[in-house]
Design a binder for these strands. Structure first.
Lengths: 91, 91
DNA sequence: TTCACAGGCAAGTGGTCGCTTGCCCTTGAG
DNA sequence: CTCAAGGGCAAGCGACCACTTGCCTGTGAA
């Protein structure tokens, strides 16, 4: 999961899915190109989505011949559970 | 900072600093070897600490000829600020 | 002052990552 | 049925990363 976050494009994909949940692959491609300055092939985005998916940050849902992508922030909780995020350890 | 988290050894270093704050380089090396199964050179750990330091996750403090390392979880807050960690977005 | 200790700098190397290219499979529309 | 749309699989390539090796710089103790 930490590897999934270590990429600017993947973080932008997460941003986009948080902004508009339930997008398809092509929608993500176009919004990434237009809104953010990302110019990548469809395959690149597809591989990024695969990494995000098996990191648990993105859950997919087949809908006919399209594939809907949803954001899931649950894995991020392991970060806050592992290290103290702020000054709350020994006050 | 995301790159700093994308490494098992660096995450273990953070664990060690959370467990016992204010260790030197050699202390971190020995505790990493004894407590966790890490076998790395001193140079490797030094480079890891450098990455963690300029990610802001570790702050150093020169004390004579030794260097004390402190953990700082403040940069982790940017993660929770950027994406919803749990189901709190649109309830 | 002298010397051992804690740490830093720099180059080289094997491995992994991100991206591209090319081809294929499944599904819904006509 | 026919065929184009949405997406997946796999190989190849360039670039970055983690680690090692070797040498060097300050600093405190004897």
């Amino acid at each position: 999961m930490f590897r999934a976050l270590d990429d600017r494009t993947r973080r932008l994909v997460l941003d986009e899915l948080v902004a508009r949940d339930g997008q398809t692959l092509f929608e993500i491609c176009t919004t990434l190109v237009t809104r953010h300055g990302v110019s990548s092939t469809r395959q690149a985005i597809s591989q990024h989505l695969a990494v995000l998916e098996d990191a648990g940050l993105v859950v997919t849902e087949r809908r006919g011949r399209t594939k809907i992508h949803h954001f899931d922030g649950a894995p991020l909780a392991t970060i806050a559970a592992r290290w103290p995020t702020s000054r709350e350890d020994t006050p």
